[in-house]
Amino acid sequence: MRHIRATVDGEATEFLCDEGSTLLDALRDSLQKTGTKEGCGTGDCGACSVIFDGRLVCACLVLAAEAEGATVETVEGISKEGVLHPLQRHFLEDAALQCGICTPGFLVAAKNLLERNVDPSEEEVRFWLAGNLCRCTGYDKIIRAVLNTAAELRGESS
């Protein structure tokens, strides 16, 4: 067992982990942050997307022990004081989810994109999100929700 200190969703956090376990296991099982999902465990689906020291990564491909001293942002830190982030609101308004398993990963990945580029083209959004799989929606509504959020963040009506 190893004792890890990290900043998770803005809070100084400590947890114990097996040296072979993943960051995804630690988030879900030790920290009860079950918003971050496991779809494949092999880096293919993006359901486990988190921001690790500023980079979008798959938490299933990071060892929990690597998080020592790191900053981790999950879907659970996206809304602030009970107010949904515009992306979350647009996902609801644009019906960009059905079963919802992929949604946390899409939200984390899309938020990271919009922080880097608030005016992405549809093609850029599709490429950025190519590592997030959804088996329900057919993607169009997800892409539209992201583009509509971008427009709102730029102060354009949407």
Partner: peptide, 9 residues
């Protein structure tokens, strides 16, 4: 190589 997530690593 891979997706945006994979690119991060």
């Amino acid at each position: 190589i891979g997706s945006t997530q994979i690119q991060g690593r």
